[in-house]
């Protein structure tokens, strides 16, 4: 890979990417928002959630893992791709147990905000209603697996930033879940409240205790503008 900047287009807009950037990173810098859930700017990309899937020269690929390259033609904000994204979010809602009215992360939740942005009023698929385990054994942090979307941000943050291995995955299919690196529960791990792993959860799954409902309704992150507005604002300011 050369270290020269490359130029390509997203939805017909010409964009220059720095050497080594992914399509999603270059889009962010250019003020174009590509919807995403498992991606976090301070972590290596996971490519799990597929929400950031765009069409690159006509073929679908996750923009968080795909390197920007000279002359690529990328489609992002199209009806077809947004329909797929809405369906992915819908599946996340029916596979988990997301009780927004009682959740302390409501209003600041990226899953909920993504559903708002994509215009999801109600799921069209039946709910799974699976039993998922709550782990409140740690003194400062709890894990409510009802709200987990298996994005893996916590596992990546623990490994890459905290240099621990507190979180990981176990199981397959509907039994897949976030596991903790201890014989029984989170309280036996070396997780600290200040760890990156305790901060990066997009939903209300990994939460700090004694912090719930701190921000009043009306002042929460996504109360007034859709997720991605910050990125899109940087474009209109240019």
């Amino acid at each position: 890979m050369s270290d020269k900047p490359v130029t390509f287009t997203i939805d017909g807009v010409e964009i220059t990417a720095k050497a080594g950037q992914t399509i999603l990173q270059a889009a962010d810098d250019a003020g174009i928002y590509i919807p995403r859930l498992c991606y976090h700017p301070s972590l290596p990309p996971g490519g799990h959630c597929r929400l950031c899937t765009v069409k690159i020269n006509g073929r679908p690929a996750s923009s968080c893992t795909f390197p920007a390259d000279e002359g690529l033609v990328v489609e992002n904000d199209t009806e077809e791709l947004n329909d797929h994204r809405r369906r992915i979010v819908e599946m996340l809602f029916v596979e988990g147990n997301h009780y927004c009215p009682t959740c302390e992360h409501s209003g600041n939740c990226e899953l909920q905000a993504m559903a708002y942005r994509l215009g999801l009023l109600a799921p069209t698929l039946p709910y799974f209603r699976c039993e998922r385990e709550l782990d409140a054994s740690h003194k400062d942090v709890y894990v409510d697996r009802d709200r987990c979307i298996l994005c893996g941000r916590c596992a990546r943050a623990s490994r890459e930033v905290d240099h621990k291995v507190v979180f990981g995955f176990e199981g397959r299919g509907v039994h897949k879940r976030i596991s903790v690196d201890a014989p029984h529960n989170l309280g036996e791990t070396n997780l600290a409240a200040a760890d990156k792993a305790a901060e990066v959860c997009p939903t209300g799954c990994i939460m700090l205790k004694r912090k719930g409902f701190a921000i009043p309704v009306g002042q929460r992150k996504y109360d007034h503008e859709p997720i991605g507005s910050e990125i899109e604002r940087s474009r209109s300011a240019k």
Partner: peptide, 19 residues
Amino acid sequence: IALGACAVTGGVPSIRNTV
């Protein structure tokens, strides 16, 4: 028209669904 969280998703009463 389904009005409100319970009509749309089952809502708070549906917390019993996993038991």
